[in-house]
Amino acid sequence: MKFSFSTLLFLSLALTPLSLLANTFSISKQTPSSAFKINTNASDLCTVATNTLDYLSKGQEYDPAVIHANKLSEFGISQSDITNTLMSLCEFAKADVKNNTTRLADINFLKQHYDFYKISSDIAHAKALSEKKPLLKNLTSEKVLMTKYYVHLASGSEQRNNEHAFPLYALPFDEQDLSIEQADKHKNKLTRFKYGKQTILSGVLDQQNLAEPLIFLTREDLESALLQGTIVVDVAGKQRVYNVHRNNGIAYDRTLKPYEQNRYWYFKQVNGILGYGKDANHKIAVLPEVTFAGDLYQLGLGALVFAQFDFKNHSEYRMAVMADTGGAFEDNLYQLDYLAGSYPGIKAYYDANRHMPDYIDAWFMVLKGDTK
């Protein structure tokens, strides 16, 4: 889950305190042009859609924070619309494989079966944060700011050494047998809620034997893990994937630089890249280039985004599911974060993605009523 997988944009942004501004986010039915090709892996899109549906099937009582249509319902899009849309993707994708067709890559087919709602960004909030931030300053209401995130590849050690001196901790011992609901009832007693990141880095967990180090990393790799929520670590030639488990209850402070934060995540070893989930045992497995992170708390989990990527030499459409979020997306209706892939660092990421646009035209795709 990109639960604190704060975007690259916010690595250097400091938040100006917001005044009480009217929310200017809106969507309206507007069909995209047929001029550009669709470049989306339908099988991967179906996989993320299916994984998201599995989470949605747990019901609103399980996770009312994101299983809803909330802001979208104001414009006529319901929770069942989101679910039906995701279900239809896989039905069409499976039929395409069976019949050797590519209908999900046909814009005219999509227009026949889906309504498109063009996103108009919450420009008022974006402008309130725009001082010394050119990407926000240049954002227009008709575009959505698109940042990119990636899964960090790192080397690590099972033992602390001079190079790998910073542990990635498992959930503290006093909470390992508790569900998240049980843990929430005992916040005042649990180790997880007692310490901020700066205190943890001073060694308090080791000194009092409060939590197990899963792996030892460099400080840079540790910060990347905390920021992005997932890290792939090479240990003696074998890769392990670690994902956020539960945090210490301290909010990400956008007035502080990442290294200065007190928000802290405990991790667990997992089998793949994971997106949103309120607890580590029930998270959505996601894939690059078909996953967006965004403000799930206002927009809800699972909305299907249809986006126009304008490159220097051409434009194309891509589709992705909103299956992730992060601290940077709280009260943020002007930005989406695109899961770009896995890279060993910021330079490798940048070299591979420097051609990607910073702004996109974006629509929510919704299955038409007569198609359901």
Score class of each variant (00 low, 15 high):
Phe3Ala: 11
Phe5Ser: 12
Ser6Gln: 02
Leu9Glu: 12
Leu13Gln: 05
Pro17Glu: 14
Leu20Val: 13
Thr24Ser: 15
Thr24His: 12
Phe25Gln: 03
Ile27Lys: 09
Ser28Gly: 12
Thr31Lys: 08
Thr31Ser: 14
Phe36Gly: 08
Asn41Trp: 03
Asn41Lys: 05
Cys46Tyr: 01
Thr47Gly: 02
Thr50Ser: 15
Leu53Lys: 04
Ser57Leu: 02
Gly59His: 08
Gln60Asp: 13
Asp63Trp: 10
Val66Met: 05
Ile67Thr: 12
Ser73Thr: 10
Phe75Pro: 07
Gly76Ala: 05
Ser78Pro: 13
Gln79Phe: 12
Thr83Arg: 14
Thr83Asn: 14
Leu86Gly: 07
Ser88Cys: 03
Glu91Cys: 05
Phe92Ser: 09
Ala95Asp: 15
Asp96Val: 06
Lys98Glu: 11
Ala105Lys: 15
Asn108Cys: 11
Lys111Leu: 04
Gln112Asn: 09
Lys118Gln: 15
Ser121Lys: 09
His125Leu: 13
Lys127Tyr: 08
Pro134Phe: 02
Leu135Thr: 05
Lys137Ser: 13
Lys148Glu: 02
Tyr149Val: 04
His152Asn: 05
Leu153Phe: 13
Leu153Asn: 11
Ser157Asp: 12
Arg160Gly: 05
Arg160Trp: 01
Asn162Glu: 14
Glu163Lys: 15
His164Met: 07
Ala165Val: 05
Phe166Leu: 06
Pro167Ala: 02
Ala170Val: 04
Leu171Asn: 03
Gln176Asp: 07
Glu181Phe: 07
Phe193Thr: 10
Lys194Gln: 15
Leu201His: 12
Gly203Asp: 05
Leu205His: 11
Glu212Ile: 04
Ile215Gln: 01
Phe216Met: 00
Ala225Phe: 13
Ala225Val: 01
Gln228His: 14
Gln228Lys: 07
Asp234Trp: 06
Val235Glu: 02
Ala236Gly: 06
Ala236Thr: 09
Arg240Met: 07
Asn243Phe: 00
Gly249Ser: 04
Pro258Ala: 08
Arg263Gly: 08
Trp265Ser: 11
Phe267Asn: 00
Ile273Gln: 14
Gly277His: 10
Lys283Ala: 10
Val286Asn: 08
Pro288Ala: 04
Thr291Tyr: 06
Phe292Tyr: 15
Phe292Pro: 10
Ala293Gly: 09
Gly294Trp: 00
Tyr297Trp: 07
Tyr297Phe: 09
Gln298Gly: 07
Leu299Val: 11
Leu299Asp: 10
Gly300Met: 08
Asp310Gly: 01
His314Phe: 15
Val321Cys: 08
Ala323Lys: 02
Asp324Ala: 10
Asp324Gln: 03
Asp324Arg: 02
Gly327Glu: 04
Ala328Pro: 02
Tyr334Gln: 08
Asp337Val: 08
Asp337Ile: 03
Leu339Thr: 10
Gly341Ser: 03
Gly341Cys: 04
Ser342Thr: 03
Tyr343Ala: 04
Tyr343Lys: 08
Lys347Thr: 11
Tyr350Gly: 00
Asn353Lys: 09
Pro357Ser: 03
Tyr359Trp: 01
Asp361Cys: 04
Val366Cys: 12
Leu367Arg: 06
Lys368Met: 05
Lys368Gly: 12
Gly369Ser: 14
Lys372Arg: 15
